[in-house]
Amino acid sequence: MPITLRGRSVLTLEEFTPDELRFLLRLAADLKTEKRSGKEIPRLSRRNIALIFEKESTRTRTGFEVAAHDQGAHVTYWGPSGSHLGRRESIRDTARVLGRFYDAIEYRGRSQDAVDELAAHAGVPVYNGLTDESHPTHALGDFLTMQEFSEKPLSQVVVAYLGDGRGNVARSLAIGAAKLGVDLRIVSPPIFWPAKSFIVQVTSEARAHGGRFTVLEHVGAGVLGADFIYTAPWLGEEETGWAERIRLLAPFGVRANVMEATENPHTKFMHCLPACHDRNSEVGARIAKQFGIECMEVSDAVFQSKASIVFDQAENRMHTIKSILIATIAG
Rank of each mutant, 00 (worst) to 15 (best):
V258Y: 01
P194W: 00
T4Q: 04
K39G: 08
K152N: 07
K322W: 10
S155N: 14
T17S: 14
R166N: 03
K268G: 00
G167V: 13
D278W: 07
R26P: 15
E89Y: 06
S281I: 08
T17E: 08
M270W: 01
N280I: 14
F213P: 15
G211N: 11
F192I: 06
C272N: 05
H69F: 08
F198R: 04
G176V: 02
F101Q: 14
L27C: 03
A174P: 05
G241I: 02
I324T: 06
S150G: 02
P233M: 02
T62R: 15
A170G: 14
I324D: 07
A226E: 07
F64M: 09
Q71I: 06
I329Q: 11
Q313W: 03
N264Y: 02
Y107I: 11
E239L: 15
D183K: 10
A67G: 03
V254D: 00
A114Y: 03
P18F: 04
D278I: 09
V215A: 06
D116C: 10
F64I: 05
K196M: 06
G123L: 10
L118M: 03
L44H: 01
D312F: 08
D142M: 09
T94A: 12
F101N: 15
M1R: 07
G82P: 10
G82W: 05
E148P: 00
E151D: 12
G129T: 02
T58P: 04
T76D: 10
A314I: 11
F269T: 00
A114H: 11
E20C: 07
L273W: 05
L24W: 01
C272V: 04
V223R: 10
W234K: 03
A206K: 07
E14K: 10
A122F: 11
A160V: 03
L140D: 11
D70K: 13
F269A: 00
G284F: 04
P189E: 08
L98I: 05
I41A: 05
S57N: 04
F64A: 03
R110F: 04
I329M: 12
K179R: 04
F291M: 01
A314Y: 04
F213W: 12
T203E: 09
R171K: 13
T33K: 08
H209L: 09
V126E: 04
S81A: 12
T131P: 10
E133K: 11
L21T: 00
R317M: 14
M318A: 05
G167N: 12
D70Q: 13
I229E: 02
F303L: 00
E148C: 03
F64L: 06
A67Q: 03
Y230E: 06
M318H: 07
